[in-house]
Design a protein around this nucleic acid. Structure first.
Lengths: 256, 256
DNA sequence: TATGCTTTGTACGCTATCGTACCGAGCCGC
DNA sequence: GCGGCTCGGTACGATAGCGTACAAAGCATA
């Protein structure tokens, strides 16, 4: 399932700084609890990190890359219900007293991460209240994100939903180039591909993004967030309130 | 905020059987932990039990009645993202290390419940791993419910969403008469009222429900669930797996 | 029984999005 | 430089749901 990274094994107790926001916020005690079990892994695009309804064997703290959580109406349609990268954790459900979820999670953008055996993480969560709290707080932000997705799906037009999605992606990536195809976006948003094409042209016409083959460049982040409407914001605010800064770069590159 | 019930004060340590599923599943130790703090309350229809972004002062275990969790695009539109009654708990977020949520929760159907001060519940959750586990597992089922709502909103036609909503309501109520107006349903589902009228006529034409003024009677529960499509099911299965039977009556009244 | 409010049914034109299909454009390997 | 593939743009009729408006029906109260 996961390809171990041969070159990047982390010596125990090395003074590591993690890109993963959750790991980065852990105190020394919690870090000591987890580090012996953390193992670098490669996360190629398309990798299914959680199979629906299957017991989870490993949790993963992504360092780079992006994960999509997908709900499907048995083959008929697949829709994204949430998205995270280095801000989150694959396998939060372990903190909720279960070991499986009915939704699939896969790598939407390739990256790397640190994996840990489900059992080891569960034990650590039981042993450390502060670690547990951090993961539960992240779960809360994800719940809000899912709720906002439900809201957007119910009442926001395709263009707003697209803008929201691009902003969320942008939050979790370095740089302003997002690699996605229209086809892919159409699946994520639960709309037709031509609908994405048109919506993207609108955003491009407004000077917010620049679309190229298989790539969308964010030109005006602030404008993009505005175009996303009020469905963007609450989940992000919750994250900043409960955990910390969501975006890495505070220089706000793409804000003209 | 809550109206205490004068007539129904519960003597401490009385051998009470709770209708609330979570309370009913607590062991004697956890019950002993909570009972001294539980206070019966009336939950009239329309009562806002959680104000968005306001600190939660009390949690409530509903005994009867129904709560709706609402996300709103600032006045423009209000959409339901989840729904629970005696299967759940007002204030699950307390177990997630926060004390507020950006969504409103209000009584959609009046009922009664047992309330507890937020601080007391938080302490109990910290003290008892088994109590914590139960609430966290419930949170997991609610997260799945919200995800399924997002999915349904994205890709299920109004008629399916309506059927899903009616089935979910039916799960959490005694009897087969659901008291709702088209107006109300339209808000819950994020569609126009006439759309509800038409969709309801479809369901009625198929012999699944009977609609009267301000009331929908479920005639064929199995058929209704079928009409709801695959968006109904996963959240309910998760509840039964992690917590226990969702519906009270196993006689399946409305199944012809 | 009359009055008035709430709820429900229906109509109309409008728009976004659908399903499908086809073609051009960019990109890769040979 | 050529074939083949993926990706993006566009077109077309069909349709579900929208916003609005208005009238009928149910219920409550006077």
């Amino acid at each position: 399932m996961f390809l171990p990274l041969s070159s990047r094994s982390t010596p125990l107790n090395a003074p590591t700084t993690y890109q993963n926001r959750l790991l980065a916020r852990l105190g020394p005690d919690d870090l000591a609890l987890l580090q012996p079990h953390l193992e670098p892994v490669d996360l190629p695009v398309g990798l299914v990190v959680i199979e629906p309804d299957q017991p989870i064997t490993h949790a993963v703290f992504p360092e780079t890359g992006l994960c999509s959580v997908i709900a499907s109406l048995q083959e008929r349609s697949r829709v994204e219900i949430g998205l995270y990268g280095r801000d989150g954790l694959v396998g939060t459900v372990l903190a909720l007293g279960s070991n499986r979820v009915p939704h699939q999670t896969f790598m939407q953008v390739s990256g790397t991460g640190l994996r840990i055996e489900a059992e080891a993480l569960t034990r650590a969560i039981e042993a450390s209240a502060s670690l547990r709290l951090l993961i539960l707080r992240y779960t809360q932000t994800f719940l809000v994100q899912t709720a906002q997705t439900a809201l957007a799906n119910a009442s926001a037009p395709a263009e707003e939903r697209l803008a929201r999605w691009l902003a969320m992606y942008h939050d979790r990536q370095d740089g302003d180039d997002l690699s996605v195809t229209h086809e892919f976006l159409s699946m994520m948003l639960g709309v037709r591909r031509p609908t994405v094409t048109v919506a993207l042209q609108m955003l491009e016409g407004a000077g917010l993004v620049r679309a190229q083959r298989g790539r969308v460049r964010v030109l005006d982040r602030r404008g993009l967030i505005e175009a996303a409407g009020p469905a963007y914001g609450p989940a992000e605010a919750e994250y900043e309130r409960l955990i910390g800064p969501l975006r890495r770069d505070r220089d706000e590159r793409a804000e003209p």
